[in-house]
């Protein structure tokens, strides 16, 4: 297993050196410093919106714009469907991606009040195969501190968040396990997952 991972890593590195595949180049194009600056800027923008006196609806709309710009939602959606992505029809893929986007946005903007007065510090970035990991410590008034690590990768020429790690657990891997478990017990029927996501979206609103 380790040999295989080593082989894969050296292949990727060679490909990147030779200016090979776009994916390999993308993973290596972003420097740790750039990734940290990107997270720092994003955090400042989001906190400015969260702490502003604007009405709730306006704040949500502004946050949605930021999230769409800084989070690789489509890539994450595709990752979370795993092997079922290829089994889905193009129409199902489209509908699933739309619902995923909707549920993700609502789950963030639905708890806006919880994030008021948040402050953060960023740790030393760690470059890895899948992107740069930027550790952060979030502090909220009267709440225990939270350690979150942001995984940033170059997608299509601009840095984007592709994952968040909490206490070493990856949000996208966990989400993929959830959808995978659901699909396995529903005979791999992507339509059933879409229906479940629709119910989830309705419950959120």
């Amino acid at each position: 297993m380790q040999t295989r991972r080593f082989l894969l890593r050296s292949t990727l590195a060679t490909a990147a050196l030779a200016g090979g595949t776009r994916l390999a180049r993308a993973a290596f194009a972003l420097s740790p410093v750039q990734a940290t600056q990107f997270i720092d800027q994003t955090a400042k923008q989001m906190i400015a919106v969260i702490d502003s006196p604007a009405p709730q609806a306006e704040k949500s709309a502004q946050l949605q714009q930021i999230i769409d710009r800084v989070v690789a939602v489509d890539e994450i959606a595709r990752f979370c469907l795993g092997r079922y992505w290829r089994q889905a029809t193009p129409a199902q893929q489209q509908e699933y991606a739309k619902l995923f986007h909707h549920v993700l946005l609502n789950s963030i903007t639905g708890h806006l009040g919880d994030y008021k007065g948040i402050t953060y510090t960023l740790g030393r970035p760690i470059p890895g195969d899948g992107g740069v990991q930027v550790p952060s410590v979030l502090t909220r008034p009267g709440q225990p501190t939270a350690n979150l690590t942001w995984v940033v990768a170059d997608t299509g020429g601009s840095p984007k968040i592709i994952d968040v790690l909490a206490e070493g657990t990856s949000m996208r891997v966990t989400q993929r396990s959830d959808y995978g478990g659901f699909l396995d017990s529903h005979g791999g029927n992507v339509g059933a997952l879409i229906d479940a996501l629709k119910r989830q979206a309705r419950q959120q609103s």
Binding site: S107, E167, G168, T169, T174, R176, S177, D178, G181
Partner: peptide, 20 residues
């Protein structure tokens, strides 16, 4: 929030232990 809490806990447990 999970559609399959069992599968979600299985994944979380394994990831958490691995990180520890």
């Amino acid at each position: 929030q999970a559609l399959d809490p069992y599968a979600t806990f299985r994944s979380l447990y394994r990831q958490y232990r691995k990180a520890q």
